[in-house]
């Protein structure tokens, strides 16, 4: 199968994944958005590991988790990561975990005005532009 359409590929992007107790996902997403993230995806999961080691105290750790995934540019990565860490209170034992996965490439819907901006800058600078950076502006 072959296609003739032009693809707009994002490079220099990372995926931040954060696991928090159920109900905390929105708090983390709000913090990420405040730091410039464009969107987020959440799905549910069940945590294991810490609870088993806590014995009776395991009731204090919610087994049901929310897994938050946010795609950000490399430029935004550290700031969004920090804000999510703080909002999720991830320095508290048993609250969850957050990690970054470097992405090889990504693609998303890019609004026409952003595409236009990219084209204008490309014409001016004659250089390859990082689309993810333009999107995060």
């Amino acid at each position: 199968m072959s296609f003739q359409k032009e693809m707009t590929i994002l490079t220099e992007v990372s995926l931040i994944t954060c696991m928090v107790p159920r109900g905390q996902g929105n708090v983390v997403v709000e913090a990420a958005r405040g730091a410039g993230a464009q969107g987020a995806s959440i799905h549910y999961g069940r945590g294991a590991g810490v609870r088993e080691r806590l014995g009776l105290l395991s009731i204090t750790v919610d087994a049901e988790k929310e897994v938050v995934q946010i795609m950000v540019s490399k430029q935004q990565e550290e700031e969004v990561f920090t804000e999510m860490f703080i909002a999720g209170k991830l320095d508290t034992p048993g609250m969850g975990i957050i990690y970054v996965t470097p992405l090889e490439k990504a693609a998303t819907y890019i609004p026409p005005h952003v595409l236009e901006k990219i084209e204008q800058r490309r014409a001016k600078s004659h250089q390859k532009l990082n689309v993810a950076e333009v999107l995060s502006e």
């Binding site: 296609f3 996965t101 998303t108 819907y109």
Partner: peptide, 23 residues
Amino acid sequence: VFELIYNLSAIELEEGHYMYQHN
């Protein structure tokens, strides 16, 4: 496969849709 999914899912046309690839 990335290109195939990109085209089949019309990523560039639908707001909120996105995709990524990593090792």
